[in-house]
């Protein structure tokens, strides 16, 4: 693929971002990160309160990239088979089976949104994680493939009742964890409340230009990005140092206030996590019109690709978000390149 095609795709990506930014206001950083994950082909865990626009955001992206969009709500009685099929009695009085959300769009499924994933049981997590990892599913004596699927899962960190915390191994399957917060800007807040165009979500999403990208070409193009954006030896060394620092932050002089750093980290970022971080950094470099990854590209995705992979001592789990943010900021400040 020539450089001009890279530029063309970049323009399409920026166009998609621009379209989504019109619909979901005040969320530039999450939108950039979601764009990055789409081109890096990584699944995303969204973190945020209810009613902040997560569903609207995903529907807008799905409309822009094309393909099928499916959604399921996590509940305590949800079973794995509910993702695959559901049964009902038809008008003829006989039992019928119809495809569940995972199978409904077939291979064209591009976005699968699992709302409140931590309300579902571990059995459901298990199935979803397999689908995420292998992008395939065995059902009805056949193997079903979802080569273009990206899973977006949402969890509410505040509510803990009747929830099943996603284990660290499962969190590691997600490329990013992106916080979605209500914008602080008064004008945006006022618009969200009083501007009538935000009241009808369906009509709002319809305003996004459809099929800006071709969802079934994203896998191939993602490989092209990864192969074309360079990472120098210095950058590799820098990424390696960052990785080491996530395992032993004290070795790099990183401290978090009110935390015993000797006891904090049980496990740093995984090799898969660091590989995903570099994939995302390459996409970020491409989105910024660069031919090589800079430390700045790693910084842009460092928190969202690494924070949810860190395994802390149970005593610090309740403060995970705050501690992870402070620790990772400390690591970026402590590790130099070159």
């Amino acid at each position: 693929m020539s450089d001009s095609q890279l530029v063309d795709w970049r323009n399409h990506a920026l166009n998609l971002e621009s379209e989504v930014n019109k619909v979901v206001v005040g969320q530039h950083t999450p939108i950039r990160l979601i764009t990055t994950s789409i081109f890096a082909r990584g699944h995303v865990l969204l973190e945020g309160d209810v009613g902040v626009g997560k569903t609207t955001l995903l529907r807008a992206f799905t409309r822009g990239i094309g393909g099928g969009y499916q959604r399921i709500e996590g509940t305590i009685d949800l079973m794995p088979n509910d993702l695959v099929y559901h049964t009902y009695l038809g008008e003829d009085g006989k039992p019928h089976v119809s495809p569940g959300p995972l199978l409904m769009s077939g291979e064209n499924l591009s976005v699968f949104f699992f709302n409140e994933i931590n309300r579902a049981r571990p059995q459901v997590h298990s199935l979803l994680l397999r689908v995420m990892a292998e992008r395939s599913l065995s059902a009805f004596n056949a193997e079903h493939y979802f080569p273009h699927m990206i899973v977006f899962a949402d969890r509410n960190q505040v509510e803990k009742e009747e929830t099943f915390e996603i284990p660290s191994a499962a969190r590691d399957r997600f490329m990013m964890e992106i916080p979605i917060v209500v914008p602080n800007d008064d004008d945006i807040m006022q618009a969200l409340v009083f501007d009538t165009k935000f009241h009808n979500v369906d009509a709002l999403v319809e305003t996004v230009k459809p099929d800006i990208l071709q969802f079934d070409e994203l896998n191939a193009f993602s490989s092209i990005i990864q192969n074309n954006i360079e990472a120098s030896d210095t950058l590799k060394k820098y990424a390696l140092n960052l990785w080491k620092a996530t395992k032993n932050p004290l070795d790099y002089g990183v401290k978090v206030s009110g935390v015993d750093m000797n006891r904090l980290v049980l496990a740093g970022a995984s090799p898969r996590g660091m590989s995903m971080m570099l994939r995302a950094a390459r996409v970020n470099a491409w989105l910024n019109g660069r031919a090589a990854v800079l430390p700045d590209d790693i910084h842009a995705v460092f928190h969202s690709t690494v924070a949810h992979r860190l395994v802390f001592s149970p005593v610090y789990e309740m403060r995970r978000t705050e501690i992870a943010r402070e620790m990772l900021t400390g690591i970026i400040n402590a590790v130099a390149a070159p």
Binding site: L294, D296, H299, A300, I332, N333, A334, A336, A337, P338
Partner: peptide
Amino acid sequence: IKQAISKSHLAFNQTAGFAIFND
């Protein structure tokens, strides 16, 4: 030149008290 740049970066980082990048 590589060494000079590296040493200059170190001077910036030590002056600031943290690693300085473009961002």
